[in-house]
């Protein structure tokens, strides 16, 4: 069995846990319950492969966990809620994650989440600001499960 490691990072309340629940096919309530520390979920990626996704709490107190646990990631999924304020914060976060994982050569992608909300920045614009590929997403919509699965799968292939 080939197991990959995926780290899901981002500011508080951008939808990291919802994204993981979407990938796992779990119920999505749309309510914000902050992740305490971190959670993990396993995603089957075909017959003999799986991805273990680490969903980290976005609050500052948990940054020490990020430092310890994102090492060895094959792909880092950075989530933004697509508001201008948060996209700029996310840019700093990506620089930090790049420095931290430069030995791992991890593939870093962005998810421009909450595209259903008014004023959401277009993914092309998010990608321009962040300097990495950004994929549009509404993680609260279960219909996007296959789309998110393909994004993750392709990101792992590109490694």
């Amino acid at each position: 069995m080939n197991t990959s490691k995926c780290a899901i990072l981002g500011s508080p309340a951008v939808g990291k846990t919802t994204l993981l629940r979407l990938l796992e096919g779990k119920d999505i309530t749309g309510q914000y319950i902050p992740t305490q520390g971190f959670d993990r979920g396993a995603i089957k990626m075909g017959r003999n492969a799986s991805a273990v996704c680490w969903d980290f709490g976005g609050q500052q107190a948990f940054y020490d966990f990020w430092k310890q646990y994102i090492l060895g990631s094959d792909v880092i999924v950075v989530v933004t809620d697509s508001t201008p304020v948060n996209v700029l914060q996310t840019k700093q976060l990506i620089e930090w994650a790049k420095r931290l994982t430069e030995d791992d050569d991890a593939n870093i992608i962005a998810i421009a989440n909450k595209q259903d909300l008014p004023g959401a920045m277009a993914p092309e614009r998010v990608s321009d600001v962040l300097g990495i590929p950004a994929y549009p997403m509404t993680a609260t919509d279960p219909a996007n499960q296959e789309k998110m699965y393909q994004i993750l799968k392709n990101s792992l292939k590109r490694k």
Binding site: P12, A13, V14, G30, Q31, Y32, D81, T83, V85, N86
Partner: peptide, 11 residues
């Protein structure tokens, strides 16, 4: 403000 708006979604 950003987080409050996210918290008040469907809540």
């Amino acid at each position: 403000k950003r987080i409050i708006c996210n918290m008040l979604r469907q809540n």
